[in-house]
Write a protein that binds this DNA or RNA. Structure first.
Length: 268
DNA sequence: ATGGTTGCCGAGCAA
């Protein structure tokens, strides 16, 4: 055949599972339906020795984990070979929170994927908000280094950033919150302005698309959601973009996470 | 309604 099928189509997703042990079977059901090639998970909430790896390996995924006891924790599931796995966001030797993992996906071409769980930062102002902003500055520095490598790059995860008011149902409810504060949005834009694109906005321009609905106060029934789970694409990754979406139906299932998966389709 | 819910792990904390 002549050079028409130089690339293959891959699906890459991010999913904050709010405990991988509590959600393993829900995740497996979703893996069978969506059949993503690579998934970054957040809030796995367990140490690496008790991560339910075999459940995902039995579905055909290799599993890379970076966890801690009870809080945070990130992982990568991939049907495609992973190389050069790195855990932890550089820039602060004192930081022991498990919020960053990255790896190179080696298919016909290579792609760098970062899975991140950006600090929530509430209450703001305060030490937790200071940690959030410093963490975003470190992510900016890491993003800059990754871009210099000139490999198509995706930074995906729970950003705990509502980029614009149209990314939430009730903007007035979020005034002063760490997810919408001017400093937070500026730090997010600073990363974007390095040359990244919010993949979901390439094919969805309307307000009212959300990736998180709080468990409390009937947020789901009122569709009182926010869009905080993002896949940021470097320019070379953006050139390969085909489609994106949010698997909102997952929030309506039994014992759901408070987040739902967000995915993209790329030509790789 | 000064609330509400879920998961950590078995008391509050984090979200």
């Amino acid at each position: 055949m002549s050079g028409r099928s130089q690339f293959s189509v891959v699906i890459i997703a991010t999913y904050n599972v709010n405990s991988v042990k509590a959600r393993a079977h829900a995740v497996v059901d979703w893996l069978r339906e969506r059949s993503p090639d690579v998934v970054v998970l957040q809030e796995t909430k367990c140490t690496d020795d008790v991560f339910p790896k075999t459940i995902f390996e039995d579905c055909g995924y290799c599993v890379e984990v970076h966890g801690q006891k009870s809080y945070n924790g990130v992982a990568i599931l991939s049907k495609i070979t992973l190389e050069d796995v790195r855990c932890g966001l550089p820039g602060d030797d004192e930081d022991d929170q498990a919020r960053w993992i990255e790896a190179t996906v080696v298919n016909k071409r290579a792609l760098r994927i970062c899975g991140l769980y950006l600090p929530n930062g509430n209450p703001a102002p305060g030490p937790k908000f200071d940690y959030k902003i410093k963490w975003m500055q470190r992510a900016y520095a890491r993003a800059k280094i990754l871009l210099a490598d000139e490999m198509p790059t995706i930074m995906a995860g729970d950003y705990n950033v509502i980029p614009q008011n149209e990314d939430c149902k009730n903007p007035e409810q979020w005034v002063g919150d760490a997810l919408t504060r001017a400093e937070t949005r500026a730090a997010f834009r600073r990363i974007i302005n390095l040359g990244f694109t919010d993949a979901f906005r390439l094919n969805n321009s309307e307000a009212g698309h959300y990736s998180f609905w709080d468990y409390q106060a009937g947020a789901w029934n009122k569709d009182n959601g926010i869009r905080i789970d993002h896949l940021l694409l470097s320019s070379q990754a953006t050139d390969r973009f085909r489609d994106s979406g949010i698997d909102k139906f997952m929030r309506g299932r039994e014992r759901p996470s408070d987040h739902v998966p967000v995915w993209i389709e790329l030509n790789l």
